[in-house]
Design a protein around this nucleic acid. Sequence first.
DNA 1: TTGAAAGCGCTAACAC
DNA 2: GTGTTAGCGCTTTCAA
Lengths: 343, 343
Amino acid sequence: MNHSDGTQFRRPTINDVAALSGVSKSTVSNVMRGTGSVSAGTRARVLEAVAALGYRPNATARNLVLQRTNLIGVVVGDLANAFDAELVKRIEQQASGRGYTTLVCNTGGHAEREGSRIEALLEQRVDGIALLDFTGDRAVLSQLLGERVPVVMVSCWSDYTDCVAVDDMVGVELAVEHLVALGHKRIAHVVDPLMEVTTRRARAEAFERAMLRGGVSPRSEWTLVFDPDDEDGERELMSLFSAAERPTAVAAANDYTAIRLMELLERHGIQVPADVSLVGFDGIEIAGLSRIALTTVTQPRDELAARAVELLLHRIEGDDDAPPARHRMNPALVVRHSTAPPA
Amino acid sequence: MNHSDGTQFRRPTINDVAALSGVSKSTVSNVMRGTGSVSAGTRARVLEAVAALGYRPNATARNLVLQRTNLIGVVVGDLANAFDAELVKRIEQQASGRGYTTLVCNTGGHAEREGSRIEALLEQRVDGIALLDFTGDRAVLSQLLGERVPVVMVSCWSDYTDCVAVDDMVGVELAVEHLVALGHKRIAHVVDPLMEVTTRRARAEAFERAMLRGGVSPRSEWTLVFDPDDEDGERELMSLFSAAERPTAVAAANDYTAIRLMELLERHGIQVPADVSLVGFDGIEIAGLSRIALTTVTQPRDELAARAVELLLHRIEGDDDAPPARHRMNPALVVRHSTAPPA
DNA sequence: TTGAAAGCGCTAACAC
DNA sequence: GTGTTAGCGCTTTCAA
């Protein structure tokens, strides 16, 4: 960082301001932070020097002495999934409104990447971490717990940290009930490999339970993972839908998966909803496009984000030893045109 | 941050490690960073102490002394726009691969928010900043330039910083040529209010030029902004398409806009492409869904992100006084089913 | 109302 | 090969 004339460029420090305005640096500090008591005259002189020098406090130094960074980390599975992206956007918005800057890590669902990114966040001494769609790797999680850094899990569940999530049971029930009410009996459940494992399991279990309650028997071989990068898996998936005894409906674990599945099915000549009904989960924007018109279970994204930030900051700024707080929100079914009675 | 037993919790520092392993902190520092020369024996003892204490270097202190943070800021218009989200995802990936952690700010296109978020990045002493879809507010930009912090603009243009962008001229030409070749003469241009102003202007100008070159005369009243939050604007837009002399095709400034416009048109009974042809710009994933099948001009996202990070890190780690570097990449037309000859 | 001084946890130049 | 020391730029007692 040099001037083009070769002289070293140095950002002005609090000392420069103090020198120029003829006061001590404690006074400058007081003026900058609005603390202590300084006379109107000196305050003006200091402010003048600040402006003249273009002084900007160095957070790096402040972080060190305060042992706080006003940084929060957000660990997310996949920003290409609109639900994740929209959640991150809202979290960033909330956090910045409360004076925090957001560090974002996209893990792609890889546990080892998750670990190394969290490691970096910890080194940077973030004040707290929000985990969205956390894969739930035991080692990573226990490492985090050991650090005693405030953590909030969003859209997934843990016994040891604050959590905020939609009630998966209720949501899946909503989806299955809708399908059953339409007359479907052969219903499959398709999940996203990137999805966090406890959420996946929770939704899968809720799926079975809801099926049973609806008087329909779930088949274990009809709960499968749709990984678009895995061509074998794709073939396997499609063979399911060309079998004689094939599902007439699918409850997908999220919209992203549902929409890619819709695409896959229709590329193979299987129409939605004429041949197969499809219901998603999340309520991402594009699901509402009339060309997609995905029936889905929506999550209250604004509330989810707001509550997550609130929990995190409460633990950062307030009482750190309170027992973990859990918040469940209610999902809602939005019926569009991807579901219909079976043929 | 207290233990539940009430004793103060203190993270182990380099001094604790030094004390436990019976060496000086410089030696600990050397083994942590792999610098200097330490004997195998002491290295082992130090590492043992590190493990025993769960020591993790404090980046906050390192940042202060090194005057480097290994943090880069990414300022983005709207994470709900898949193009932005995908770019951020790739940038984060590239950056973390090279040892940098990413601070993300979503500005929603508000200049004042842009300013305050950048202010926060600067206080945190980020090593560099990537601006995507920067609104280009003069004050904000010159503030940034004055800071002498490395900046790279992605998908937009400036004379004073490194830039990487697709060649808008070529892209828009591709779109217009395609439309003209199909026989369209009445072509409108619809832009996104969130889009960065110079990009918007560049694409608008390129649009006019391409029209002229195609032997078609552009009409200024057919270049308009589509702001989904503005109902009056929406009505105005639709009245354009119900006029006797109405456009038979639209070149949208990006896919996000194109897809929302497709939705709006079809909700008003105007079919795409039967009544109106539509071509987008960006090449976001969902444009490729068969239900959307948007003809569009794709940007090479991977290259864009890779090059942006490369430029930024080069300026951070290397020569700071080189003249601004410009990189233009080539866009490509992908013809799908949102375009057809005029009725 | 102001200033002096002691650190926060680390790196790096230099001495041993 | 290892230790000593002087900061990095700030906040925060505590005196004056």
